[in-house]
């Protein structure tokens, strides 16, 4: 029993198309500018398709040492950070998913409280500093190793698994570690995939901790460098830290937009996979803050 298409459907479709365009147009613009010679877009001319294709911006960026170093740093931080986050979160969530272990309630409370109260920026900074982590990748990775929300969500997934499975393994004489690795984890692929992607996005996009914890710009990941590269065009704002002089001199709109595109490329690549899993994660995530 299908109703016929009315003006109402048309109106909704038109509005949704318009909203989608506000997302698509900036993307097309960035791509078009990055593949055009700087002259074509110099005065803010809205181009959605390059008139003269050129790879100059990419050629330049992918040979600029500062830029390459930041990409390398981002990859290292993302890979190590994601691995560590997965290991720490899964192990803690698994331990907390089992009933009847003395101290479980206390640990849950300890974790839950961090959701509603935190020491704040400066005390956290002092801890990282006193641990001697300034100017190390660990300063970015360790403070973000997991969160109360991650642990709670993974834990509730583990609790939804049928208990008969690991009981059977236990009767067969398997130790707890073996049960976790050869029974529970293979059954938890969807949640692990979800969190792998979330952690990757989180570490790739990390910006502020690099600004406060990394004075040595050779350690900078891509995000803070990108900020400097684009901030130069925000008129009176001068880039405050040392941006590689050569990089600064060559900043046309094409190079800036190529840098924006490269900084979001990994996200766009994993996005289809993210989309496959995120609905469930987001449902739980909306309770996050």
């Amino acid at each position: 029993m299908k109703a016929k298409i009315t003006w109402f459907d048309g109106l909704i479709a038109a509005i949704i198309c318009l909203i989608s365009l506000t997302v698509i147009v900036p993307f097309l613009y960035i791509i078009a500018v990055s593949f055009s010679p700087p002259g074509d877009s110099m005065a803010g001319n809205l181009i959605l398709w390059p008139k003269h294709w050129t790879l100059d911006a990419y050629n330049y960026l992918l040979n600029a040492q500062t830029f390459l170093t930041s990409l390398k740093n981002s990859v290292i931080i993302t890979v190590l950070g994601t691995l560590l986050s997965l290991v720490v979160s899964i192990m803690l969530a698994y331990a907390l998913s089992k009933k009847g272990i003395p101290g479980r309630r206390a640990v849950l409370l300890l974790i839950f409280f961090t959701m509603i109260f935190h020491g704040g920026m400066i005390p956290s900074y002092l801890v990282v500093k006193n641990l001697g982590l300034i100017d190390t990748y660990a300063a970015i990775i360790l403070p973000a190793a997991t969160s109360a929300w991650n642990v709670m969500v993974i834990r509730s997934f583990f609790q939804s698994l049928p208990p008969s499975l690991d009981e059977a393994a236990r009767i067969d004489g398997a130790g707890e570690f073996r049960i976790l690795f050869s029974v529970v984890i293979p059954l938890s692929k969807p949640i692990i995939a979800t969190f792998t992607l979330f952690f990757m996005v989180q570490f790739w996009n990390e910006f502020f901790s690099a600004v406060i914890y990394l004075n040595d710009t050779n350690r900078w990941p891509i995000q803070p460098l990108l900020r400097q590269m684009v901030a130069i065009s925000a008129s009176n704002i001068s880039a405050d830290a040392a941006l590689d002089a050569q990089l600064a001199a060559n900043l046309g709109p094409n190079v800036q937009n190529a840098a924006i595109l490269l900084a979001m490329l990994p996200i766009v690549i994993v996005y289809p996979f993210l989309q496959k899993y995120f609905a469930k994660g987001a449902m739980l995530g909306s309770i996050k803050e």
Partner: peptide, 19 residues
């Protein structure tokens, strides 16, 4: 899923002085 820095960059491309 885009970082705030990327959004900031896009904002400058559109709303900057030569945007």
């Amino acid at each position: 899923f885009l970082s705030w820095v990327v959004i900031y960059g896009i904002t400058i491309s559109f709303f900057g002085p030569s945007g």
